Computed example of a mutant assay.
Amino acid sequence: MTLEQYNALHEPEKAEVIMQGNFLAEREENGLPVQLYNLGKIYGEIYYDPLANKILRYRAFDDIRQLGPYLAHIRFNR
Rank of each mutant, 00 (worst) to 15 (best):
H73Q: 15
L9T: 03
V34M: 05
A60E: 12
I55M: 05
R57F: 07
Y37V: 02
L56V: 15
T2N: 12
D62P: 02
L71M: 09
L56G: 11
P12N: 06
I46P: 03
G31N: 12
Q35R: 13
L32W: 06
L36D: 08
A60I: 08
Y37Q: 06
R59P: 05
Y43C: 10
R59A: 07
L9C: 03
L67M: 01
Q66F: 14
N53Q: 15
I18W: 01
E26W: 00
P33Y: 03
K14N: 07
L24T: 01
Y58L: 00
F61A: 13
D49T: 02
A60L: 05
E29K: 10
P50D: 09
A52Q: 08
N53W: 14
Y48R: 03
G21C: 04
N22D: 14
F61Q: 08
L36T: 11
Y43I: 09
R59V: 09
Y58H: 15
G68K: 06
D49L: 05
N53I: 15
A60G: 12
I55T: 15
R57Y: 03
A8G: 01
E28Q: 13
G40N: 01
Y47N: 00
E26R: 12
F76M: 09
I18D: 07
V17Q: 10
A15L: 00
I64D: 15
V17I: 13
A52N: 12
E45A: 06
P33D: 09
K14C: 02
L36G: 01
H10D: 03
E45I: 09
H73E: 15
L51V: 13
N7C: 00
L51S: 14
F23V: 00
P69D: 10
A8M: 06
P69K: 09
D63F: 00
A8F: 03
R27A: 08
Q20F: 00
N22M: 07
F23L: 03
K54H: 14
R78H: 13
K54Y: 14
I46F: 05
A72C: 08
E13W: 00
K54T: 15
E13Y: 02
G21K: 07
D49I: 05
I42P: 01
H73I: 13
L51M: 05
E29H: 12
L24F: 02
E11V: 13
N77D: 05
E4S: 14
E11M: 02
I18F: 04
Q5P: 01
I42V: 15
Q66P: 00
